[in-house]
Design a protein around this nucleic acid. Structure first.
Length: 808
RNA sequence: GCCGACGUGGCGGAAUUGGUAUACGCGCAUGGCUUAGGACCAUGUGCCGCAAGGCUUGUGAGUUCGAGUCUCACCGUCGGCACCA
């Protein structure tokens, strides 16, 4: 008997798939299925165990869909722009293009060695001018539609990367990439108006099939809140007439306005007032300046609430009451209007502050109305109730009062979002040049579309500058150009796009990778879009996933794309941790290199192991010891080949037949739900049973092989061929189960006495309750437990349990 | 602090609507094979107990004929958000 030689087998089938272009997707009329994984960033470290997990999972689905008769698109490419490559270039002096070439070659080799069924004929690379011409084109369209604008804003500056970061890229005040410190800096930046799409990005989540936790995270990130803007007139400003100035506040609780006992403004707003001539006392000036400055380099630890009395008053428009104005650190300048009406009785933060500074607390929403004995508060009451102490609104349910009070005080309903516009400039080299030109006469002018792409020029040095200018700024012959509008001298934008740009539309390019006149052909987009199933990491939920939905919606609006949501279904995989459940990292030396595993155990074993190791969505620790299990399973299957008889199934073996149909059902359903671990354990159960048989009916074995093929495609093909088939197993139709054949005739019933299992009984499916009871009562063991007690009641769950109750 | 998920053998983990807890795999033990080790094969393997039997799904209570699953309280772990008005 031939030994299972994974190296020989895997090499043979990978070459054959390549030769036959087995996974090339043809545009056509058949029913299509578009499977997508997040294309990798080709780092110098090569692929890691996490790539294998995500890609194998999608490969299993893609292969199953092909077997089900779908025309499957399962593409791959490279998200090739980005910082690590650039940093490597700085260190070594090698051009990022060459580094990228080397890395993508390595990734391609590694992915092919895993036997993932990618359509390699559609490979794309975001750093290829033939690709980024369209990234730039999309930017121009955004600009033309007023969605790209330049603004001086406080950005998050990372000291070690020397780059400005989007809000999304800052985690706990630190750079998401390198973990280094960041600070706020004012800089001119290109911005994309994603906030214009906030509402649609939120609402359309209802129409897609994403994991619930993904939807929740996006909803929280968008952070919609409905409320009102209300003007409070100011009084007591030195040298100013009362009521001349006013402050606009935002609140979600207009119903509590009668309970406002002070008005709180952010240090940012106070500073703005001071800048335009507010004569405040020294204490206020100092406080506002300090807090404003400290918020620039804001640390994210919980801060104690502080504030100072501004010495002026605001007039509550609901009752004309004069309430003091405070400058406080817990109101943020960039949220809402930067000012709030403080209602200590019904807001926890206001309550905490009022307690500390001994400000009045006035309850106006009472939970026990009409008993007017409102409880004495030891914390803010934020729940529902009826209004008290609110003039004409007394007795009204608070929810109902919201709208009426807004009207009463002349406020305006307003919706705010946490989502901020997207900071789109990066002062680095290895990215798409932003196709804009600055002319002293005409201002910012877009490069004309015929002049695209604006090709990234070669530079001598890749180092970014501490002043925050891109290395591109040093290339005079590239920077200096002529204005597309007036023809006068002008300068190119030297900032480049963030690495999120190319990945915001790559799923569209896969539909038509060679197109030179459009980002993709309309008909092809019509056929392939939307992506039917997209799997990726949770860490991209608020970045890539949101950004790409935004771009797709914009492209839909201008008629460039046929669907408004790019992904019909989105799932995510759990992280693979190192042995012992800690994070894999080069410094700890605990990184698993897939190449070693493929070499030693084979790609099929690695694939199977990663699918078997635990629930797909869950983070899980690597275990080298456990790899042997899947390997033994494959060896066992390899051995079973010898026992396959040439005849057709012996239907006398009803038990095996039932198990086969159960296995087909379970594997089919588990793949759809991404319960790969239980699908594999079911296949193991079946193969264990096959091994007990002297000979195996061919048709049973063949069905089993087809279930195995998506997980371990190389060995499945090899065995399939050795059974005398000329065409590969990947073109064979997916096996179907017969519901009638799943049921076995004999079944084991657990016999309980008073809820405790005391024995089991093998019965026929056709047995009735009283027959089972009689037989159970004949059993000595059961008899003993029933004892002298009378049978008061029995509960029978068909096929499962008979419970004999003697006490009640 | 808020939101969400989760807690099952030595380990990774199974368990339809509440219905035989510990499937499958790893590890371990004993035996076989082997000069030896590994690999492989067979059998066993939740805990206590000689046995009968008892106990067991983070802890404590509750509902039920019956709870890993449902309810309440508590403890713990992980993820997300973090003064969003």
């Amino acid at each position: 008997m031939r030994k299972y030689d994974h190296k020989e087998i895997e090499k043979k089938w990978q070459e054959r798939w390549e030769r036959d272009n087995s996974f090339g997707a043809e545009d056509g009329n058949e029913k299509k299925y578009y499977c997508l994984i997040e294309f990798p960033y080709p780092s110098g470290d090569g692929i890691h165990a996490g790539h294998v997990r995500s890609y194998t999972a999608m490969d299993v689905i893609a292969r199953k869909r092909r077997a089900e008769g779908y025309n499957v698109l399962f593409p791959i490419g490279w998200d090739a722009f980005g910082l690590p490559t650039e940093n490597y270039a700085i260190k070594t002096g090698i051009h990022p293009r060459e580094v990228t070439k080397k890395n993508t070659d390595n990734f391609r080799r590694q992915l092919k060695a895993l036997g993932i069924s990618f359509d390699w004929s559609r490979e794309i690379n975001t750093s290829d001018p033939a690709y980024y011409i369209w990234t730039q084109w999309i930017f121009l369209q955004l600009y033309k539609h007023g969605l790209a604008y330049k603004a001086k804003i406080a950005i998050n500056w990372c000291f070690s990367c020397k780059i400005g970061l989007a809000n999304e890229e800052v985690v706990d005040g630190k750079c998401e990439r390198c973990g280094g410190a960041t600070e706020k800096r004012e800089k001119e930046q290109w911005m994309l108006k994603i906030t214009k799409y906030a509402d649609r990005l939120l609402k359309d989540l209802d129409s897609v099939d994403y994991l619930e936790k993904i939807k929740t995270q996006q909803r929280n990130w968008i952070g919609k809140s409905d409320g009102a803007e209300i003007d409070f007139k100011l009084s007591g400003i030195p040298g100013q007439e009362d009521g001349k100035h006013s402050v606009k506040i935002f609140t979600t609780r207009p119903d509590t306005i009668f309970g406002a006992t002070f008005l709180a403004v952010s240090p940012d707003l106070a500073k703005k007032w001071l800048d335009i001539g507010w004569q405040a006392n020294e204490e206020v000036k100092k406080y506002a300046a300090n807090e404003f400055a400290s918020r620039r380099a804001r640390d994210f630890e919980e801060k104690e609430k502080t504030g100072v009395d501004a010495g002026i008053f605001a007039v509550n428009p609901a009752n004309g009451e004069k309430i003091p104005v405070w400058v406080v650190n817990y109101v943020l300048g960039d949220v809402g209007t930067g000012a709030i009406m403080a209602v200590p009785a019904h807001d926890e933060r206001d309550f905490e502050f009022a307690k500390k500074y001994d400000l009045p607390i006035k309850m106006v929403v009472c939970p026990h109305y009409p008993e007017k004995t409102c409880p004495v508060l030891d914390h803010a009451y934020t729940g529902a109730g009826h209004l008290v102490g609110s003039g004409a609104f007394d007795g009204m349910a608070n929810e109902e009062a919201k709208k009426k009070i807004i009207e009463f005080v002349g406020g305006k309903q307003k919706t705010t979002y946490k989502l901020r516009d997207w900071v789109f400039s990066r002062q680095r080299y290895w990215g798409e040049p932003i196709p804009m030109i600055f002319c002293k006469e005409c201002g910012w002018t877009p490069v004309s579309e015929e002049d695209l792409p604006v090709v990234l020029p070669d530079v001598q040095k890749y180092e970014p500058t501490d002043t925050g200018e891109s290395p591109l700024a040093n290339i005079a012959e590239w920077v200096n150009t002529t204005c597309p509008k007036c023809g006068g001298p002008a300068r190119r934008e030297t900032d480049v796009m963030p690495n999120w740009a190319g990945s915001s539309w790559y799923f569209l390019r896969y539909c038509d990778t060679e197109n030179k006149t459009a980002l993709a052909d309309k008909e092809k987009l019509d056929y392939w879009m939307p992506v039917d199933w997209y799997n990726g990491g949770m860490e991209h939920t608020t970045l890539h996933l949101l950004y790409s939905r935004f771009w797709n919606k914009f492209l839909f609006d201008i008629g460039a794309v046929p669907v408004s949501e790019p992904y019909a279904k989105r799932t995510s995989h759990g992280l693979i941790l190192a042995e012992g459940g800690v994070k894999m990292s080069k410094s700890k030396g605990n990184v698993v290199n897939p190449d070693d595993i493929v070499d030693h155990y084979g790609a099929d074993t690695l694939r199977l192991y990663e699918m078997f190791m635990g629930p797909f969505e869950q983070a899980i620790g690597w275990s080298e010891d456990s790899l042997i299990g899947p390997r033994r399973f494959l060896e066992k299957v390899w051995g079973l080949r010898e026992k396959v008889d040439k005849g057709v199934s012996d239907t006398a073996d009803k038990e095996l037949e039932a198990l086969l149909h159960q296995t087909i059902k379970k594997v089919s359903e588990d793949i759809e739900a991404m319960r790969f671990n239980t699908a594999i354990s079911q296949m193991m159960i079946f193969s264990n049973e096959l091994e007990k048989r002297g000979s195996i009916p061919t048709d049973y074995f063949v069905s089993f092989l087809m279930l195995l093929a998506p997980f371990a495609p190389h060995i499945a093909e090899e065995i399939w061929e050795s059974l005398g088939h000329e065409h590969p197993i990947l073109h064979e139709p997916w096996p179907l189960y017969d519901a009638d054949k799943i049921v076995v005739e004999a079944q084991t019933i657990a016999i309980q006495v008073n809820g405790k299992v005391r024995g089991t009984l093998i019965t026929q499916v056709s047995s009735r309750e009283n027959e089972i009871l009689e037989e159970a009562l004949r059993d000595e063991r059961i008899k003993k437990w029933v004892g002298a007690g009378k049978v008061k009641k029995t509960i029978y769950i068909p096929g499962k349990v008979l419970n004999i109750v003697t006490v009640l």
